[in-house]
Design a protein around this nucleic acid. Sequence first.
RNA 1: GCUCAGAUGGUGGAACUGGUAGACACGCAGGACUUAAAAUCCUGUUCCCGUUAAAGGAGUGCGGGUUCGAUUCCCGCUCUGAGUACCA
Length: 1008
Amino acid sequence: MDYQFKDIEQKWQQFWADNQTFKAEDKTTKPKYYVLDMFPYPSGAGLHVGHPLGYIASDIFARYKRLKGFNVLHPMGYDSFGLPAEQYAIQTGQHPAVTTEANIATYRRQLDQIGFSFDWSREVRTSSPDYYKWTQWIFMQLFNNWYNKDADKAQSITKLIEHFESNGSAGVNAVCDEEVSTFTANEWKAKSANEQQKELLKYRLTYLRESTVNWCPALGTVLANDEVKDGFSERGGYPVEQKKMMQWSMRITAYAERLLKGLDKIDWPEPLKEMQRNWIGKSTGASVKFPIESQESRIKSQEYIEVFTTRVDTIFGVTFLVIAPEHELVAELTTSEQKAAIDAYIVQTKKKSELDRMADAKTVSGAFTGSYVLNPLNGEKVQIWIADYVLAGYGTGAVMAVPSGDQRDYLFAKHFNLPIVAILDTQNIETEADPTKEGKYINSDFANGLGYKEATAAIIAKLESLGLGKAKVNFRMRDAIFGRQRYWGEPVPVYFKEGLPHLISESDLPLLLPEVDKYLPTESGEPPLGRAEGWKHPEGEYELSTMPGWAGSSFYWYRYMDAHNNKEFASKEAIAYWKDVDLYIGGSEHATGHLLYSRFWNKFLKDIDLVIEEEPFKKLINQGMIQGRSNFIYKIGYSVSYPPVYDGEDDTIFDKRSNESDKILPQILISKKWYNEYLSNKNYRKFLYDFLRDEFLKNIQQNSTDASMYNGAFIDEDIFKVIPTHVDVNIVENDILNIKKLRGSRKDCQNAIFILEDGSMSYPTNPGKDGTYICGVEIEKMSKSKFNVVNPDDLIARYGADTLRMYEMFLGPLEQSKPWNTNGIEGVFKFLRKFWRMFHNEAWEFTVSGAEPTKAELKSLHKIIRKVEEDVERFSFNTSVSSFMIAINELTDLKCNNRKVLQDLVIVLSSYAPHICEELWVMLGNEAGTLSYATYPKFNPAYLVEDEFVYPISINGKTKMNLNISLSLEPKEIEEFVLANADVQRYLDGKQPKKVIVVKGRIVNMVV
RNA sequence: GCUCAGAUGGUGGAACUGGUAGACACGCAGGACUUAAAAUCCUGUUCCCGUUAAAGGAGUGCGGGUUCGAUUCCCGCUCUGAGUACCA
């Protein structure tokens, strides 16, 4: 029988499901290998052709590893809490759980069709209570721990309490809130329970904090920094504003250094690591206190302004100080003379949105407060300014300005006429700042004559001795806000009593998401959970915000290890066996979100001895984005004008004919070539216009009931134009429009006239014979509105899953972003048919021979055995698909029909095209279902040994001819052989080569 | 601005350590089979010049360099994509 992919694929998908073929063993002597995909959010739109790209790659890898004797864990699940389901719920009243369930069913059906070797027995869903029980449980562990800097790890909060009880706050070196109190052991014991809790909250790894948050009024929730893009929400694109709110936060900053260092030990793409490094944003420098000069009594609250600088060596070049307009001391520092100017400036900055502020980066603006600080090292008076180039949220919100070394400071000084002092003998500050570190210091007191390193050390030492500064490391990364004012997320397992948060009892987990009547905030502005009736802890009110989207995805790979455990998130044994993820495949868009938070939670879980590895994902691959490839048809746009008609009564223009003119004249669509002609050629434009006008007149004659109605009607030559319009890519093949289908699918094109590529016309009544209509092409994001979504279901129905799998790999390197293009899929399909035919005779009867394989056959086979090994190990899937084609082409040419060769070939190909291989495997007489655990054939280099090589003979590096030479010859002999050749002599034209380079087994090059 | 990735035929791409550039596939052209179409098979296909066949020449974004030899290494530039940004 011919290759019946439909039957074969259905049959084996059913078989795998029935037999749980891909269920991973927990107890086995085989080495483990954990292949993980980023689990999807089940959106309502279902999968498009770009989604499975990474899944196909990981599936090939997983199947390959099984053949290589590994116990492979390859699970799948759903990140099923999230905003879209809730937005949909708000609009329709449909419970998010219901839509999520339906979407998951679609996803599952689509995934199953592609023939993935997932172990579905371990499926997880973040929105299911037996899963989010553990999300809540980990939250509780974070609440019960603090970060001990001395131990450089998280520790139980009870240890901290013990410390307070015996030593008070002395000797605690923690990552904690800034305003912790100091107390003795006795003072601690004297505190009330509530006071103690209040203090402890400042240390916990998850804690409440009044923080400025990204508030999105349209979504009614707080967003994380990585969910905000240019002042708009990433999802939906709604405006985001800054607002102060009490929020749950995660002390991820405690792990900043470890998150940074860990990057050096993991095999991730360099760009992705770089993104995380930038996000963490470590800068090494010093914090320096500038004493506020306070002859006046108005400055009371603080004696110093603290700044952070990475160039403390330039401190003698400080000529002014700039603080952010939002800085807490602004009001106090402003003198009465300057008040008007400062107030005006603040008003001006507040008006500017984030976007304006960025776009406006080049304009210098600021205002003088009227106050001064003293340079801590030389006591000089330094003006204090405010300016919006200093950000309140970074460092201390204040900078020491060194115009000689910093370009922004330089521009500022020039603009406001402030002094600029050179501090290095090599500095050239005529026209711009010079940030160089070379040269010797000048104008720098005790640092004069020193180099950069010595000066920095000396200045820090001096500042430390004065108690006015110290070396400091600053991170850009902030603590992560851990609450959303939304419904469809994990409830926070906390209740409030007397204004203080308390964990619920562990035995009460999971804290179930309650039912609400509406998915909107309450009338009083509380989150939707405020609507839940009777939802109350015996001791107090539950927390009403839910956890953010990244909570559930920050440990899910552990849950797969032991998905049904209801005593632990995963058993000690399971974690000890599976340890970590060996290969993780997913998109780079999660670089600073999911991937960073996951590493953070993993490190925390390691600290409290629940997991083994410091890093969760050993190797990570980013699959590229698949873009859409839109097709266009070119419509002629026109409007019909009429001479004015007056109805006689009140001189108003009356005209009902224009409504009809659309029906009179059908659409005219021109092929791509003619569109280009239209753009560049005036004469063609004229031709088109004439054609349009003639058609119009002709149609009036033929179709109008009253042709006289159109007397004087004309088409305005200036207004008429050709408009590219999206056309559904599914009725276009190789950019050739299927005219029939277009007529059928779009009413406005039903009677359209097509001007075809060869210049002929296609009418509904006379479709034209040979001409084709070529569509235009553009690469855009895949989306419904652009009619460029290609759905895997359609392709599978037409070509089968094996073809789709191989074609997606054939498209190009996995990590590269590329537009989807169905044009080449036929080639892959033909390849599989050719492969199928190798097992069959002319009459499509299964026939293989038992003869011993020939040398040539073995050579082809072993070439592909090695090639696939090499390619899969370096994730170069596209090149193995080509190599398969080469192998099959070679073996077909050899008329190979040999069982021994074909059986090994089936194993090698099975990770790419599992269905067809399973079928052939059984036809070859093997037991059904054993292919997935067969042994990958052993590569034997002996079959590839050659005794001759076709040497390219080149002269001055240009290849001129080829010579077949025995590989047993040494370079000297080769040289003689080549020079003796008559053709070579002809090329040399009697000349003696200056030099002959012979590389054995590679090339012969002669220099003339 | 900064950081990173990339640029190869009509198209997707291959060339792994410097060694025959364009594998494999699509598309296109021609042919075979067929009453015809589909399917299948065969041949050709980087460009220029040219021919009966040839023989030349150019060529991996641009300009230079190292080398017997560069898509590959080095320097400078252009363009495209991604990330990021008054980060002190």
